[in-house]
Design a protein around this nucleic acid. Structure first.
Length: 790
DNA sequence: CAGTGAGCGAGCTTCCGCTTGACTT
């Protein structure tokens, strides 16, 4: 039995703190919240001042039982959850659930996990802040009200199983808005003129000087006229300006900036970054990874300073304290940094090492001096024209933090390295022209969001928290509102004009553009739901909605307003909108009428049907005259918002009969898994290069025969007295197929040597999946009971 | 694996934030 029970939120934190506190203290973890609103009902009693109905989460029951018995035996229980709204609420829930009272309970907080900070916290406990707890309740109840009242409206008006929420709906809106900007974007082009001059130094050595014309031309004729003037022109250096400049390091990582940089520099997805960071945290290699703070402990500042001095010298060290600028930051933790600043590298998986290295560099760089640079701009006059060429270059005089780390930026397009060493040049120097190239350049449409750039945007708007950025991205994809995928680009032609020696030549080249890799795209359903919510619940879709309610939560936290009043003020008008939307609005299906089919004279439209987006030929009202409309699913790559009449009409051309083979019909269609041939009730996929609209019978027969050979080869073994059992060769090697179920063959066994008895034995010994999971969950629930007994 | 697109009505779905494993392939 121990006199002091300390409860923190994370087990890794508990382990560390226990070492600082000695054997009089037992440190346990609550694993986050222990209670939440009941999920089965509404969880909030609206009639009764929004009284929350809290229940202990199923997976926390045994933990609460254990904590309860430890608390009963302890003299003092120290509630050491984070010092923010959620942390305060966790402490309050623990008090309630563990039957604690003010006499034997102390609330302590610390922002960094150092011995000094912990001991200081123990010396200065404070009472629980009920106002902060109420602010959390208001936040929790509001999210429940919005989520559980609006989602059912979607089930009725759009499609079952959909969801809406304060955070996710706005996240989807961002992506939908961006997609529409892109759809409506029209690109324009202009000519960018670049010149190469040759400069000879004292020793006769020739270096190139690249410069761009300060003016861009819209028309080819203008370019031509300009190049003609350049043919005989004299190029003189008009001006050389050298300016000092400096660059400062980026602040240490928060969750959001770590996700962004890991995405840009290492190509990690947001959730990948978090799970690797979690591993590093659990191994004690970095500080807590869910934080919005850029603050570093004084211990970290000192060790970073020593490390910088050791590696690069005193000149490179500069101690900096950063201030958080993001909206709604609660700063319960430190920034994400290495636990031990002197460790440049660690052991672990490749992924862990890379992420650690990134964190180490960012943190160290944040404690280094500015880089100082010299930026030079050279202006070159053209004797026969008023336009001027400009060359610019940058020289690093003192590297400072750049020795270690430079933050990447999202717009990788238009990347122009200005880190060029310019040749020595003076005003009035005459330059020798080599070539001048004018290339047609197109304006860029707005970029689509990546996971990480969406997180950045959400954080800027104060929407979501460090612990939820990764789950948000998963949710909006799971709900089918958004997909993350690659999409091919397109090709376009551009013109270049080149002045070389004395002649001007013109050429047309092609370039590909718009290729997207791992970007977020809205689905048809995502767009329809967003439009529906905008129409019926515009204030929830407002990007400032969260910021507005946060301000009200703050008033509750400061004791200036009572939480259920605040919620009441929100709920009345909100609930009216819910009622109205149920009454007024029609079912939203995103219908778009494309026009009239010239062949049949019927209307062509697209909409969302029961099973997804479809194209429709004819109107439903036609049905009264006995003629039903035709339907066809939209294939991947086609979208309600952008499909053309031609593309829609093509869909009705399938299924298409191509001929007969072995006296059976051969037809081509497109199904869920792409284009296929149907013959004798068998399905054969087309290959990528085959076009279902033009496929001929000869090619179809070829594919059918190929498939037959392949199927034959897939059978490694069959048994005459048990036709249901086959040993097949699949994608991952040999396996047993028996009565529509597949069974793994143990690694030690050679597939060719299996007898029928061996196979049946394997089938029998393979436990069904349901059995397996039951056995494991039982074993798991036993462990905490054991722990209690000691 | 390769469909569907009518309608009825049962019973289900759903939020955001705090935490870790528990799963499956």
């Amino acid at each position: 039995m121990v006199d002091n029970l300390v409860i923190v939120e994370s087990p890794a934190k508990a382990k560390t703190i226990e070492k600082f506190l000695g054997k009089d203290f037992l440190v346990k973890s609550s694993f986050g919240h222990v209670r939440d609103l009941d999920k089965k009902g509404f969880g909030v009693d609206i009639e009764n001042n929004f009284k929350p109905d809290y229940i202990i989460s199923e997976d926390k029951k045994s933990l609460v039982k254990e904590l309860r018995s430890l608390a009963k035996d302890a003299k003092v229980v120290w509630l050491a959850s984070d010092e923010d709204r959620e942390g305060e609420a966790i402490a309050w829930h623990l008090m309630e659930v563990l039957d604690l009272n003010d006499d034997n309970t102390k609330r302590i907080v610390f922002h960094e996990i150092t011995k000094d900070a912990i001991l200081h916290a123990i010396d200065s406990p404070r009472p629980l802040n009920r106002n902060l707890v109420n602010a959390q309740q208001a936040r929790r109840v509001l999210d429940r009200l919005v989520g559980f009242e609006v989602s059912p409206v979607l089930w009725k008006k759009v499609k079952p199983q959909l969801s809406a929420g304060r955070v996710q709906s706005v996240a989807v809106r961002l992506i939908v808005d961006r997609e529409r900007e892109i759809i409506n974007f029209t690109s324009s082009s202009s000519f960018r003129v670049n010149a190469v001059f040759l400069v000879k130094d004292d020793k006769g050595k020739i270096t190139e000087l690249k410069a761009e014309l300060s003016k861009r031309f819209d028309k080819k004729e203008e370019v031509h006229a300009f190049l003609e003037k350049c043919q005989s022109a004299i190029f003189t250096v008009d001006d050389v300006v050298t300016k000092p400049a400096k660059r400062s390091p980026a602040p240490p990582f928060t969750t959001s900036t770590l996700q962004q940089e890991a995405s840009r520099k290492l190509g990690y997805s947001v959730s990948q970054t978090m799970s690797v960071a979690q591993k590093l945290y659990e191994a004690g290699k970095i500080t807590y990874m869910r934080t919005d703070s850029v603050n570093l402990s004084s211990l970290a500042l000192n060790t970073a300073k020593a490390k910088v001095a050791e590696l690069f010298g005193e000149d490179y060290s500069k101690t900096r304290q950063y201030k958080t600028s993001s909206k709604g930051a609660q700063e319960a933790h430190e920034a994400i940094r290495p636990s031990y600043m002197d460790k440049e590298t660690i052991t672990g998986t490749k992924q862990e090492q890379k992420l650690y290295e990134l964190i180490w560099k960012r943190t160290i760089a944040s404690q280094m001096s500015d880089a100082s640079l010299e930026r030079t701009t050279i202006s070159i006059g053209v004797s026969t024209a008023t336009e001027k060429f400009v060359a610019s270059g940058e020289v690093i005089l003192f590297e400072g933090f750049l020795k270690v780390y430079l933050e990447s930026s999202d717009d990788d397009e238009d990347k122009q390295s200005s880190d060029v060493l310019l040749p020595p040049i003076k005003v009035k120097d005459i330059l020798e022209r080599d070539t001048i190239i004018a290339a047609q350049r197109f304006t860029l449409r707005p970029p689509r969001y990546t996971e990480a750039s969406l997180v950045k945007k959400l954080e800027e708007q104060g929407i979501g928290r460090p612990s939820t950025y990764a789950p948000i991205i998963t949710t909006i994809q799971n709900r089918g509102y958004v997909v993350k995928e690659d999409r091919p680009g397109a090709e376009r032609e551009f013109t270049t004009l080149t002045l070389k020696s004395g002649s001007i030549s013109e050429s047309v080249k092609t370039e590909s553009y718009g290729y997207e890799k791992s970007k977020l795209f809205p689905t048809d359903i995502g767009m329809v739901v967003t439009d529906f919510l905008l129409k019926n619940f515009d204030f929830i879709m407002d990007f400032n909605f969260t910021a507005k309610v946060e301000a009200q939560f703050d008033e509750v936290a400061e004791g200036k307003s009572e939480w259920s009043n605040m919620i009441g003020g929100f709920y009345k008008p909100f609930h009216e909108l819910v009622e109205n939307s149920l009454l007024i609005s029609e079912k939203a299906n995103g219908e778009r009428i494309l026009g009239i089919d010239p062949e049949s004279g019927k209307q062509v439209s697209v909409k969302i049907g029961r099973f997804g987006p479809l194209a429709q030929l004819g109107e439903t009202t036609d049905g009264e005259n006995g003629e039903k409309p035709k339907f066809a699913s939209l294939q991947s790559g086609l979208h309600i918002e952008t499909i053309t009449m031609e593309q829609a009409l093509d869909l009705f051309k399938l299924p298409r009969e191509v001929g007969t083979f072995e006296d059976k019909k051969v037809s081509v269609a497109i199904g869920r898994f792409g284009p296929y041939i149907k013959h004798d009730n068998k399905f054969i996929s087309l290959e990528k290069t085959d076009d279902p609209f033009s496929l001929v019978i000869d090619r179809a027969i070829e594919l059918i025969e190929n498939k037959r050979i392949k199927d034959q080869n897939a059978i490694l073994k069959s048994f005459d007295n048990e036709p249901d059992l086959l040993v097949l060769n699949g994608r991952w090697g040999a396996y047993i197929s028996y009565k529509k179920e597949n069974y793994k063959i143990p690694k030690a066994v050679k597939a060719e040597e299996l007898s029928l008895e061996d196979c049946l034995k394997i089938v029998e010994q393979t436990p069904s999946t349901s059995k397996k999971s039951k056995a494991k969950s039982k074993a798991k629930s036993k462990t905490p009971v054991k722990a209690k007994k000691k």
